[in-house]
Design a binder for these strands. Structure first.
Lengths: 217, 217
DNA sequence: GAGTAACCTTACGCAGGAGTAGATATGCTG
DNA sequence: CAGCATATCTACTCCTGCGTAAGGTTACTC
């Protein structure tokens, strides 16, 4: 028989919007440490301090829930970058700010990063969501490079080459970000500086002992 | 009751070593297109043209099987790179050859790449295996850079900075490799050349219209 | 050409976990 | 303070898929 044990009435009622955020926070943590499939809806419910049917009532199926996580974290990440990269600044300054914004986000949201780039990348339906986010980031970077090229007077730069460079840059950043996510003691700005040197000067200059310096401390 | 339907005796017996390779080939394909957890042992068995208990008899549990895939593909990848990077060549030539070796492997083993870097990366126990492979690749690259620095006369290069550069380079390569894996029509050497330019010259030189050229076609 | 070891199969046991049915508590509204 | 919508719970069902038991088949060996 149902509810044979009389229910303990010790729960607090909260408005839907609040509970939803709690659930998303819990889901991001659990997905991050377990991976998508290894994470169980039961564990997420416990982590959120709520019972399982609530999760289904508010956020839908496991897939829906995961997608909601990816969207939330992805939006936050993109906003961090776009906010950091100002308009009308020299290319190196823009790059530097963009990198700081990016690594700053990763440093502050390690779990979100793990969900986005370690989990979403390997599950087909979500990989597409992630790919479109990534594409937008690449486009931001490529746009930056294109503007810099134009200012430099070279109008014949092939778009494909710009895109490839943007791809490489984003990939390098992700690689360092992965490392950063696993090293809580590391300083995001330090990572940004290292990548700035590598990416702006290139291996050749770097090997000759050159160093890039931010104009503002 | 067991074997109530009399078994159809239409199967071919093959030596263990051959079957094992068939199973690994099948497993790599299935893991690659489904992902680790979504791949079922039944599907792998069907793909290999064999029945499930054989897989268990030869390769062990699902985890064991996956680990075997990761090890095989990882070893092949590492060997491709090490074989390509010769000894005693100028740094840019070594880098160029290494990149060609790397992208050549990815182009020829797209499924293996997917298993290694999309699946293994997100499953804890295997992530460690992958991390150690990756660490060896980074070490190869860092060693190359270190030697180049020494030849250049600068003996004060910090080891951490070298490693960070190697990390960035490997990450950039992985990013382009991911793209390559999804674009069967793309030419691996072309990807290698693009990355060579970005990585060797750096964004600054690139924006000024400089280009790196291989000494040998 | 019988014996045997290595292959190979079908048909199940069983656990974990997604998703649901049905009952109960809470607090706002008139 | 009675009524009702909403929030919340416990206790299931059922499916998927790993791993295995028990039993046939093939081909090598003497």
């Amino acid at each position: 028989m149902l509810a044979s044990v009389e229910a303990r009435p010790s729960f607090k009622r909260l408005p839907r919007a609040v509970r939803e955020q709690q659930m998303l926070d819990a889901a991001v943590r659990v997905f991050s440490r377990r991976g998508f499939h290894e994470a169980s809806m039961d564990e997420i419910a416990v982590e959120a301090g709520i019972s399982k049917p609530m999760v289904y009532a508010y956020l839908g199926s496991k897939d829906d829930l995961f997608r909601a996580c990816v969207n939330r974290e992805g939006t936050r990440l993109l906003e961090s970058i776009v906010a950091a990269v100002g308009d009308d600044l020299p290319a190196d300054e823009q790059l530097w700010r963009g990198l700081r914004g990016f690594f700053g986000f990763v440093g502050a949201h390690r779990e979100g990063w793990a969900v986005l780039y370690r989990q979403a990348k390997s599950r087909q339906p979500f990989a597409d969501d992630l790919a479109s986010l990534r594409a937008r980031i690449v486009e931001v970077v490529a746009g930056m490079l294109r503007k810099a090229v134009t200012q430099e007077g070279k109008t014949d730069a092939k778009d494909q080459d710009l895109t490839a460079s943007a791809y490489a840059l984003v990939g390098a950043a992700e690689s360092i970000a992965d490392w950063l996510a696993d090293h809580p003691e590391a300083d995001p700005d330090h990572s940004a500086a290292r990548l700035m040197n590598f990416t702006w000067l290139g291996a050749r200059q770097l090997l000759q002992g050159e160093l890039w310096q931010p104009s503002s401390a």
